Amino acid sequence: MIKVFLADNQPVVRYGVKSFFEGHSEIKISDTASNFEEVTSTLPKKNFDILVIDLELEGLASINYIKSLIKDYPKVKFIIYTNLSEQMFAPNALKTGVSAYVHKNAELQALESAILKVNEGEIVYSDLVKKNLALITKQRKNERLYRKLSTREIEVLRYLSEGRKNKEIAKTLNLNEKTISTYKLRLLTKLHVTNLVDLVNKAKTLDIV
């Protein structure tokens, strides 16, 4: 039996996923968490095969936190299950070592399939992501600039798009406020805009956030 640990903010998601796998012959939702603190406190106490986690989980300020967990718990496979843009976040998530990226728009059968495949050692991501990764090398430099944003730049852009101020973002990511300003300037340059409003609009147009 594949023991799965599900971490998601929403009670309805936790309930729905757990109900879907109730009585499953191969998969069991062994435990759930509603925030990142619960994840870090539960992992050392119990044995899981797979952690299914939302990138928007409360307390999960940076995907680097997941990277650290992957290092600390090498026997656990990680699956991202989120509403965040697959096009933008999946490639960077996979770079951290996660085994799969499943968008919440997909049917629960897609999550089921990912769990089964990941348990067998496969790396799972959609045809859309595969296609986008393949297209990167074929595009002209100015067409793929936004795809070269670093993981940290994407995180800062996400928080800027939510209307957060530099000081608040700095506190969330445990960084200096001046560092956030530097990331903001890099984003303006890379996306060829001159102000925050245009930056956010450009990000939405390109489906970055």
Rank of each mutant, 00 (worst) to 15 (best):
L55S: 07
N64C: 00
K190V: 09
I123A: 03
N119Y: 14
A114M: 10
F48N: 05
K45P: 02
T82K: 06
L149P: 06
I66M: 02
E143M: 14
S25H: 14
V98K: 06
H103M: 11
M88C: 11
I123D: 02
L145V: 10
V17K: 08
V209R: 10
K67M: 01
A170N: 02
T205E: 15
T172N: 04
E120A: 12
I115E: 00
L94G: 05
Y101E: 04
I80Y: 03
S113Y: 11
F21D: 03
L196A: 01
V102R: 13
A170Q: 08
G16M: 15
S68M: 02
E26R: 15
I50E: 03
K28D: 14
L206W: 05
T182G: 05
L60N: 09
L191K: 03
L160D: 05
V12C: 00
Y15T: 15
V4W: 02
N132C: 04
Y101R: 04
K178I: 15
H192T: 09
E22W: 14
K141Y: 15
K3N: 12
K77I: 00
N174E: 14
Y81H: 10
Y73V: 05
L175W: 02
V76Q: 00
G16H: 11
I169G: 04
S126M: 06
K71T: 06
V52L: 11
F89D: 07
L133T: 12
F5N: 04
A7L: 07
A61S: 14
K71I: 08
F20L: 08
D198W: 01
A7K: 04
I2W: 13
A203K: 11
L94H: 05
G97I: 03
R164C: 01
L157W: 06
F89K: 12
K117Y: 04
E153Y: 03
V98R: 08
N105T: 12
I208M: 08
T137S: 14
L6Y: 08
T42H: 00
R164S: 07
M1T: 13
S62K: 07
R164E: 11
V17Y: 08
I123P: 02
K130V: 09
L108R: 13
Q87D: 12
N132F: 11
L149T: 07
V156S: 08
Y183S: 06
D127V: 12
D49S: 09
L69W: 03
K75N: 12
